[in-house]
Amino acid sequence: MTTGRTRQRERRAGWALAAPATAAMLVVTAFPMLQALWLSLFSYRLTNASAREFVGLRNYAVVLADPLWWQDVRTTVLVTIVTVSVELVAGLALALAMHRIAFGRRVVRTAILVPYGIVSVVSAFGWRFAFSSETGFVNGWLGLGDFAWFGHRWSALAVLCASEIWKTTPFVSLLLLAGLAQVPEELWEAARMDGATAWQRLWRVTLPAMRPAIAVAVLFRTLDAYRVFDGVFVMTAGAQRTESVSFLAYRQVIVRTALGLGSAVSVLLFLSVLLIAVAIVKGARVDLAGVRGAR
């Protein structure tokens, strides 16, 4: 009887304490998202607000029929695949090295936290100025003369990817290092006893044991990379066919104030992020209990 009452009180206290944060999260995301869904059904520009008109799904038809949308999707997917795969390999190498060396580990960890801590716009400017033929040293060093890195799609995307990789590989390597620390030492010893080479131990022992950490790193980084915006804004502003989906949404909504069409792009972006998240969670069987810190 008493325990029942205590439990009920605990339950009520739990909800009372968790409610403000939960409500705040939903108010600042779910509510505007529903609003975006609603706006996307109108032909509506802020500059001509009186002409607002319900058009149903026509905005979606317009976006999906536009080659620009598909080009931006291709660019975003390309950037995502390149950056995430390079970051995984480099991050793993870095994590393995940090795991092995006792001396120097602190120095390395301290140094790689610098790219992580730097403001992303600052990093983007740094890379832009370094490669620009006007202010940069890269052309001077490589003897490229006046080569305009940001004047061509491929070279601009290469610099964009390099800057993203530089900035986020540290985060990946720290996640993987934490995963590596969970691999039981005995597993390694046993494999060594059985005569496995270092390469075999990596593929057969270390990587399978690190699967949860790798899956979490892939999930976070993929979703993050797919939203790429700051670098595109600073380096090319979407010129030379380097526009990302996020930048397209920004350009429609804020620059053109085409709230109807822009909202359709926003909703499509949201749906694609959702799709990627579900695919990775299901595909890699990510342990979300682990992600949430449930021990």
Partner: peptide
Amino acid sequence: MFPVISIVGPLFE
């Protein structure tokens, strides 16, 4: 995991 750019439009308005 939410793409923040998606809610910029409604918030703007």
